[in-house]
């Protein structure tokens, strides 16, 4: 392309660019409006409502007014909040960060280079758990862990154990296992794609240099998919922070508050105790924890997303 051509083309290009820009604005308008209506407005409303006495019934429901930071003060005085935050951290740490990521990686790693049919069948089974709606998964686990459930039947027939009320004796462990069971497929799929992208030559070269299998994994494979691990941990953490139906169907947050994570606590305050304003304030704390966790991961894993 010679210089004269470039100069000749220039004004025409800006004209075209202008048109294109205008065009893109118009084409983006519907989605902008959608975002404005369904994203920004509720977000702003949530912040506003968290400062009000918004209630479902009683005197407060008829006289909506601002009460300043009273909801937040009430929240930090409530010992149930500390319990819920602690439960949320335990639940997310064990079911998302440790459970889903670890098992997801393990399965993806073990399925590498295996027979295609084998990969498909196993993958399908694991993904089946993931595509099942949370509520259905909840009910499956309630049935599995129930007094007359499969687990108690097995324990009775094989070990002669008396039936255990698993859901109420080990509530947190039960919901963590259920969530790991459901969510591992997501991590597995993410890791599978990442592992498939590692060029074989790199690993072959390492083997040639005398690397053991363990060294291969820790020094070559994992560092090469570090970015994927970080993205995955973050996605899984945010997903797990919001898990509600699974816990609600399995234990309802009980017994007492043993499995009451922040979403369950929020639901109970908003819709069982009829305090919508208080519920929205709790939801903002949940948002804050999600944001903090994301920042933390980015710092620790030193990756940009």
């Amino acid at each position: 392309m010679d210089a004269s051509n470039v100069i000749k083309n220039k004004p025409h290009k800006t004209q075209q660019q202008k048109t294109e820009r205008r065009l893109s604005v118009w084409l983006m308008l519907p989605s902008m409006i959608l975002l404005l209506i369904f994203f920004l407005t509720p977000m702003i409303l949530t912040v506003v409502f968290s400062l009000t006495n918004l209630s479902l019934t009683g005197e407060a429901a008829s006289s909506l007014h601002f009460i300043g930071f009273q909801n937040y003060l009430q929240m930090f005085k409530d010992p149930a909040l500390a319990t819920s935050i602690w439960n949320t951290i335990v639940f997310v740490l064990f079911s998302a960060v440790i459970g889903q990521c670890f098992f997801g990686f393990l399965i993806a790693f073990m399925m590498r280079g295996k027979n295609k049919t084998f990969r498909r069948i196993i993958g399908l089974i694991i993904i089946a758990a993931w595509v099942t709606p949370e509520v259905v998964v909840g009910f499956c686990w309630v049935a599995f862990l129930g007094d007359n459930g499969t687990l108690n039947m097995l324990a009775h027939n094989l070990l002669g154990m008396k039936p255990v009320a698993w859901l109420y004796t080990f509530p947190m462990v039960s919901i963590i296992i259920a969530n790991v069971w459901r969510g591992t497929a997501f991590s597995m799929m993410v890791f599978q794609t990442a592992l498939d992208d590692i060029p074989q030559e790199v690993e072959e070269a390492a083997v040639m240099d005398g690397a053991t299998r363990w060294q291969l994994v820790t020094r070559i494979t994992i560092p090469m998919v570090k970015g994927t691990i970080a993205t995955n941990i973050m996605l899984v953490t945010l997903q797990t922070l919001g898990v509600f139906s699974l816990i609600y169907t399995m234990t309802g947050g009980g017994p007492e508050n043993a499995t009451s994570t922040l979403p369950v606590f929020m639901y109970k305050q908003a819709f069982v105790s009829y305090q919508l304003g208080y519920g929205t304030a709790i939801s903002l704390v949940l948002l804050l924890i999600g944001a903090l966790a994301s920042l933390l991961y980015m710092k620790i894993l030193k990756v940009k997303i």
Binding site: T19, L23, W26, P30
Partner: peptide, 12 residues
């Protein structure tokens, strides 16, 4: 661009 304008307004 006219089409896009029409489409944009219509959808909105």
């Amino acid at each position: 661009s006219k089409w896009a304008l029409a489409l944009g307004i219509f959808t909105s």
